[in-house]
Design a protein around this nucleic acid. Sequence first.
DNA 1: ATAGGGTTAG
Length: 606
Amino acid sequence: MWESSWNARLRELSKQCLFFEALTVYRQMLRRGHSPNAFTFPFALKSCAALSLPLTGSLLHCHVLKTGCEPEPFVQTALVSMYCKCCLVDDARKVFDENPLSRKLTVCYNALIAGHTSNSRFSDAVLLFRRMREAGVAVNSVTMLGLVPGCAAPVYLRLGMCLHGSSVKCGFDIDSSVTNCLLTMYVKCGSLDHARKLFDAMPEKGLITWNAMISGYAQNGLATHVLSLYKEMESFGVCPDPVTLVGVLSSCTHLGAQGIGREVERRIESCGFGSNPYLNNALVNMYARCGNLVKAHTIFDAMPQKSLVSWTAIIGGYGLHGQGEVALELFDKMVMTRIRPDKTVFVTVLSACSHAGLTDRGLEYFAAMEKRYGLQPGPEHYSCMVDLLGRAGRLKEAKELIESMLVNPDGAVWGALLGACKIYKNVELAELAFEHVVELEPTNIGYYVLLSNIYSDAKNLEGVLKVRVMMRERKLKKEPGFSYVECKGTVHVFLAGDRTHRQTEEIYRMLDELENLMMEPGVSDENDQGRNEEQLVHSEKLAIAFALLNTAPGTEIVVIKNLRVCGDCHLFIKLVSRIVDRQFVVRDATRFHHFRNGVCSCKDYW
DNA sequence: ATAGGGTTAG
């Protein structure tokens, strides 16, 4: 057999994703004394990447060097990609840096950029992207696909929007993969309105587009949106796949909608997806959380491969419904099948103990968590433990546990103690817990009510009054409304009626002008009218005027508010965008604590 | 002939 026939076989197998077989063929080829060439390596390396075999991969790298195929651009790119997919980003980097040729290739840059992004080295990816552009190497839509997923966190939203902008400018958005990727980016940033806008604007929605939007809603807890979109998808004649149904099932879980869940299960059967592990996990979770433990357990038992996620779902189900003993039994069984527990499964185990009143066993498992499994407990574990001790009346121990914490307790930890004080009528400790909890979650009204009830149980009318005054005070004062707007890498903060900004004069002049333009006929609809009487200028109006003054036409303006946007602001924004032809996105700042410091870090990356 | 990418569960 000639080299070319070996290569053809390799190609065929790799095309069919039979990567293990492809590597076997590669080995046979060597054994029969045939030398691999530049057409051999890309397939062999791709197989190593797909199977994540770093050792075989570096052995292949040696063969590449020995046969002198190194200068081949296809081989270089395959090497870079292989190392990245095996999580050896630095080795990929070395191949890239040592071959000047690579640094002229778009594909090679693309592979390396995507590799850095997917190995959580996004800032390096952005640096590479910058270097790529400085070197004059052409950027294409695949470059975007490597970069955009890195913006999947609110901090990077602005950068993601920049990438969106350049994609549109360069016409990369014709490629639906790029748009799907951007859509997912917005979803992961929690910017669902934006994702939806992109979704609605897509002329041809493929299955992946529907899935991205459906899972996006599911991940953000918008269960009703998921169900209505799923219906819409079916009415368009698009057939769901396992990814779609996972999103739908997770929403059924949220809503406790076992009926719809059952329908989905039938659909799974009829489509032949019955063996999909993701779907089975989602089904177990749905039935377990809806209280149908028999059904959940039946599906769980039938699963040939039970992952940590499957075990967590079933354990959580029993724990949630007060069957702590069963939950613990299952946990022990899981450990016996040599599955290493993680932090998440411990949350369900500890909360199972507290639901069932298994105080000492809970303490045991909590101790084992760190000692046996080397898992640092986080605040979510401590709040379970405080709840556990507190419900058992061991308030002193609960308090001492909080004091011994290495991580900072969050509101839920002190809140659990406060809840225990209610059960055991301990006013003194309740006051202490409240002091902390109110500092961490000053706007959570539930804790005020709890303390008030504790005072009321103790017939401490003075206390009740004190809390009531406090609540009224807070309500009266509220947190002052403020808005952020990002401009050139900095976040500008405005309070309502603010006059401290150095561009105040210009801003107010701009607002006047806008207000006048709004009076023009044709700008406001009839039903938009008659709402001009507020005295204090809202913070977001100031932010918007500032942004209009300081950003380029055509770019989108993101306004971040710390309070729920009232009807007025929506109207204002609607009218302004009509007048100046700019796009606005309003976001809720409560999801963006990192903006609280007033600075955004995207400057560093662009 | 050969390289780079988008959606999923606790």
